Simulated scan of single mutants.
Amino acid sequence: MKMNSLGLPKKETEVLAAELNILLANFQVYYQNLRGLHWNIRGKRFFDLHLKFEELYNDSQLKIDLIAERVLTLGGTPLHTFEDYMKNNKLSIGKNIHNDEEAITLILNSLTQLLQIERIILSQSGEINDEGTNSMMSDFIVEQEKTIWMLSAWMDQEI
């Protein structure tokens, strides 16, 4: 088995970098959805949600950078075109959403989809003992699960 300079199996690491690129593309769509929600939200909950959406898109922007840097660390090239993002996107696109519950539903659905991608990556990185990717995915998952819990509570829904 050929190993790379990180001590990880070369072939499996290439597959992992490709999966991280899928996550990267989906995070870019999630980020853009959040920007749109931030700009377009209306109603009596405007002030609270406007700030919350800004918090979420700032957080996603940091995660986007971490994912891209991990792809590079593993020897891959991060996706960086809208064409690539849309080709790999699994999230719903939120266009002109003004309603608070519709906005939160979009975020909940997006986070659920991101978690599915992250769990695939976590499983693959665990199989090759890639602790760097494991750690990053674990951190993302814990944070996003908490966000899902909080937004579900806001919607008065069970998880």
Rank of each mutant, 00 (worst) to 15 (best):
M1L: 11
S5N: 15
S5F: 11
S5L: 13
L6T: 06
G7P: 08
P9V: 10
P9Q: 06
K10Q: 14
K10W: 14
T13L: 04
T13C: 02
T13G: 05
E14N: 07
V15M: 11
A17S: 11
E19N: 13
L20K: 02
N21Q: 01
I22V: 15
L23F: 05
L23S: 03
L23D: 01
A25F: 03
A25S: 13
N26R: 12
F27I: 06
Q28P: 01
V29C: 09
Y30T: 04
Y31N: 08
Q32Y: 14
R35P: 07
W39E: 00
N40T: 03
I41R: 07
R42H: 09
G43L: 02
R45P: 00
R45L: 10
F46C: 02
F46E: 01
F46G: 02
F47P: 02
F47S: 11
F47T: 10
D48V: 00
D48L: 14
L49D: 02
L49K: 05
H50C: 03
F53P: 04
E55K: 11
E55Y: 05
L56W: 13
L56H: 12
Y57G: 01
S60H: 12
S60C: 15
Q61H: 14
Q61W: 14
L62I: 08
L62F: 10
K63N: 11
I64Q: 05
A68S: 12
A68W: 12
A68H: 10
A68N: 08
L72S: 12
T73E: 15
G76F: 06
P78Q: 08
L79G: 07
H80Q: 15
T81G: 06
T81I: 13
F82P: 02
F82N: 07
F82G: 02
D84L: 11
D84G: 14
Y85F: 15
M86V: 13
M86W: 11
K87P: 02
K90S: 12
L91P: 03
S92Q: 13
S92C: 07
G94I: 07
K95T: 13
K95W: 08
N99I: 04
E102A: 15
A103W: 06
A103C: 03
I104C: 03
L108T: 04
L111R: 09
L111I: 09
L111G: 02
T112R: 10
T112F: 06
L114E: 09
L115I: 10
Q116L: 08
I117K: 10
I117H: 09
I117P: 08
R119S: 10
I120H: 10
I120T: 15
I121H: 00
L122V: 05
S123A: 12
Q124M: 08
Q124I: 09
G126Q: 09
E127M: 10
E127F: 10
I128V: 11
I128G: 01
D130H: 02
D130V: 05
D130E: 03
E131C: 06
N134P: 01
N134Q: 15
S135R: 10
S138G: 04
D139L: 07
D139S: 14
D139F: 02
I141Y: 05
V142G: 03
V142I: 11
E143H: 06
Q144C: 01
T147K: 15
W149G: 11
L151H: 06
S152G: 11
W154R: 12
M155S: 05
M155T: 00
D156I: 05
Q157N: 12
Q157P: 00
E158M: 08
I159L: 15
